[in-house]
């Protein structure tokens, strides 16, 4: 579990959008993104980041308080201490008031050609 300096999230919303602010949970602390552009409305792209400067145990994207949010794709760019920046893409998911989705992935393990 590395120390996360910052992470940036890009969310591509499908036909089922939502108009609430986008929240994330970092180690079970619910927060809003910084430097937000776009929105989570139908067919729109949302971008936001956060300077965490803390060790990651869990990181999730939180569903809306009411209604549903149909996500087509999530891209997360992680900048962790002592690691090269890396990017992870997740597939589609539907969120609502009872759900959140994991967006934490450990840095890729070193792989080499033999």
């Amino acid at each position: 579990m590395p120390k996360v300096n910052t992470f940036k999230v890009k969310v591509q919303t499908g036909p089922q959008g939502m108009s609430e602010p986008v929240h994330f949970n970092f180690n079970s602390h619910k927060m809003e993104f910084e430097n937000v552009t776009g929105s989570a409305e139908s067919g729109k792209n949302f971008e936001g980041n956060f300077a965490v400067n803390s060790f990651a145990h869990s990181l999730t994207l939180v569903g809306p308080q009411s209604g549903k949010w149909g996500i087509e794709k999530i891209t997360v760019e992680y900048d962790c201490e002592n690691e090269k920046p890396y990017t992870v893409q997740f597939g589609g998911v539907n969120l609502d008031e009872t759900t959140e989705v994991n967006i934490w992935q450990d840095p890729p393990v070193l792989a080499f050609d033999v």
């Binding site: 869990s58 999530i74 959140e100």
Partner: peptide, 17 residues
């Protein structure tokens, strides 16, 4: 009091190695 929500796991889209 934090919300207790179900955490969904979704597949990572990996590109061919």
């Amino acid at each position: 009091f934090p919300d207790v929500r179900r955490v969904l796991q979704i597949p990572v889209i990996s590109e061919g190695i």
